[in-house]
Design a protein around this nucleic acid. Sequence first.
RNA 1: GGUCCCAUCGUCCAGAGGCCUAGGACACAGCCCUUUCAAGGCUGCGACGCGGGUUCGAAUCCCGCUGGGACCGCCA
Length: 444
Amino acid sequence: MNVRVRFAPSPTGALHIGGGHTALFNWLWARHNNGKFILRIEDTDLVRSTKEYEQTIMSGMKWLRLDWDEGPDIGGDCGPYRQSERLDIYRDYANNLVNDGKAYRDGEAIIFRVEPGQDISFRDIVYGQIDVMSDGLKEKDSDKLKDIVIIKSDGMPTYNYAVVIDDHLMKISHVIRGEDHISNTPKQILLYRALGWDVPEFAHLPMILGRDKKKLSKRHGATSIYEYRDMGYMPDSMFNFLALLGWSAGDDKEIFTRNEAAELFELSRVTRKAAVFDFDKLNHINQEHLKALPPEVRLSMVRPFWVEAGLPVESVESSRGVKYLEDALTLMAGRGQTAKEMAQFSDYFVSFEPVKSRWNADGVDKEKLRPFFTELFAQEWNAEKLEETARAWVAGHEGAKMKDYAMPLRFALTGMKVSPGVFEVAELLGRDECSERLKYYGLL
RNA sequence: GGUCCCAUCGUCCAGAGGCCUAGGACACAGCCCUUUCAAGGCUGCGACGCGGGUUCGAAUCCCGCUGGGACCGCCA
């Protein structure tokens, strides 16, 4: 089967979590089958749609690296890919339906007649058999059967109509979308039949809920994909996390790359239960990815947050080399759940200034520490030698404990009570830098 | 009000009649390692919503109940 799937957002807002999830599953299915992933813009709401949002959605998808094979920006054989540019098509088919007596005009609008007694059941790849009769398509709070508006008074097609025309004309093989569309599907099936077309396969996806188990919305905090980027989550982590909402490969593997996911993905393994968006899990997945990153990529993820914090990344890079910054973050691997946290936790590698502002002399016995630091600085400057020296010092002094020396050193160098191994930090910072920092406090 | 969907640890996911005294992950708690934890290791806590069937046997199949949710727009 020639798999062709599409993501069809309406440009009335940024790409949000739910949309990203839907786009992701479509992408997964396309890539798994070596099929095509199509982006179609559903901009038939004249009032709310904007070109800016269209751009935002596309860049959101690019950030997640959900690349499409056909779309409004790159074209394709089934274009145009913007519904506002397909109005003639919708009108032609609507006129045919009117001529066939299957639809009628009311005002400026065209309305499809729903006949009672029709079985509009369908089989969903995820949800299985869904039985519906056309008699159930009632008006709200009424027993009246509800006909379907297909062309609005302003000449634009409605969602339920345009989606059918486009999915057919664009040769969509699988319609993969949120579960909130299950109840739209029977209406669309009625339209497919009236038009004499075969229906595509349907696969509905479970909803994503907030902690309170209500549909994810602004109330739950960040909903747009971009907000996650700005918080320091990485595209591959978001991808990994979103893929796990409503799907698993069946084994215990939870940290994977997009290609691994594409290989393993099966629509038949998608879950039916709505999933709660869990920040703790996202954090963990992001941390795992952050840990596994190649040094240069890790640096590229963290760098913007150092810059954002006003740290002199550029000058440190030119004076000490990019390798220094990469090594610093290699030491940090696994520490911090977001790129932003990692940047915050490692600022002392980039500048002494934040260290000064955190350091204070409370409880620091300078007289006791000075000889120890002097001894340290008499050594060859590498972590192994430094630790060896420190241990020898502790062993040679009655009642001395490693932490009585290591902690003040850590605090003086980093301004933090937590850091990677302090001797490794010292080695990387370098003898001169360490010396400068200790002298500043009068510890050397 | 009508139609439809869902129901395993707090959360995400395993489980497609016996392999389940229900497994993994996150979170949480505790312990260990140790110069610190935001790193690493170990242990623990913790669920099949309820009631009926079917069956030698049910988390798995059927029915009812309860509880969630979606949709019923000339929004998508």
